[in-house]
Design a protein around this nucleic acid. Structure first.
Lengths: 130, 130, 130, 130
DNA sequence: GTGGTCTAGACCACA
DNA sequence: GTGGTCTAGACCACT
């Protein structure tokens, strides 16, 4: 997990997003144990409290379940994976389409620029400035 | 202008974005006068200092120009419109494509969901979730 | 507000409960501003982070609303007061009745002991040990 | 015995409470043998250490007696049953009445809601929320 | 001055 | 070893 320490987005949200992504893509399955708060804190070089906050919020969201003294686990609820995936997708696409429309782009031109970007980013993979 | 007071995005940035959008789409043209800080603060129910900060930053960016006693105006610089537009576009599309790839979507499926969203949002205009 | 530092119940939950009680009894009304996190922390001699956690959780519960730089306010939703009151009541009475039944008491005897306790506690008001 | 793994109340206390309840209601009588630590741990799917702690604390309280190689037994002391029963009752009723008063309910209304809950719960027995 | 985030470190309860 | 709570204090963003 890579953390951006120039926090346009708070660290604990970045952690949550990373887990949501892994759940959405099937890297993490219901029932899986996720790293202990301390382990994760150590490996991504972040304070343990920051990790705890991320875990706590994921628990209130019903994404994970915490068992005292045993660890934290992805919730068993059947639809978790699809739900998370759809949630993320809908939000992202929604925001994007809204923004494009606000800029006055219609469907056709939007699809165009997306295509161009896709081609452009295949070569330029690991750039990611800022 | 609608302001979201649950600031995932700071208010002064929301204000700036709104002007950038209006510039990019041609609603505001170089030379146009924008509302006085007090007026705007009053109409969108926001602290005058917040508006002032937005205007100040836009001035630093060279987007607007403030003339003592006369008001604030969109700068005359030739490329302002296109530049702003391209800036916004590139950022948006970039972020979007990156996010889609992180979720494991390829170009084809991405274009697909975008198309679907476009259709879906034509009817549901005024949805404005959080 | 009195805080019990022998924490059978965590401090942040005690704080939440106190606010819920004040909302339920009408001492706090929708729209009311509650003390700033720092003020409250100072007056009840507790760390500011502890207060913040209580406020944050109350926000996710929809009890209060936090406006950046302005303060924290009781939510406007109409039913908040009744809802909170009913929530607390139902939980308390529920747990109590269940416990009484588990101990083998029927309705009559339960009502009896409650009556006795009420009489007994009128005189002994502010005792509240541990 | 049903165990709640979302530990508002520690498991070992839940175990103790269950035994206290059974003693108070006469399901367990002085001299009765209670399950071996291993058996209980296995049947309620809990770590053996947790059961051990519960038994240890009950021994400290003088509720049970452990005989090396023979098992654990309810103590013979005369008043054990009544004492335990009264302890639990007083605590429960005390807390309840205090909470009701804190919510602004007087004796009459309190008795009322208790009556209602009793009627309501006769039908809905196996409700076991959180 | 208000809330938001983060760190460092302590101590506890639990399994 | 695991999570839970709390403290002290720092710095930032916003109004």
């Amino acid at each position: 997990m890579r953390i951006d320490f120039h926090p346009s987005q708070p660290i604990y949200l970045q952690i949550m997003d990373e887990f949501r992504r892994q759940i959405a893509t099937g890297l993490l399955k219901p029932g899986d144990k996720i790293p202990s708060q301390r382990d994760l804190a150590a490996t991504i070089k972040v304070n343990a409290n920051t990790v705890q906050r991320a875990y706590r919020e994921m628990e209130t969201l019903g994404l994970v379940e915490t068992l005292r003294g045993q660890g934290t686990f992805i919730c068993q609820g059947r639809g978790i994976v699809e739900e998370t995936r759809n949630d993320m997708l809908t939000n992202l696409v929604d925001d994007f389409v809204r923004a494009m429309q606000a800029l006055g782009l219609n469907e056709e031109t939007t699809l165009d620029v997306v295509k161009k970007r896709f081609s452009a980013m295949q070569t330029t993979e690991e750039v990611k400035p800022k």
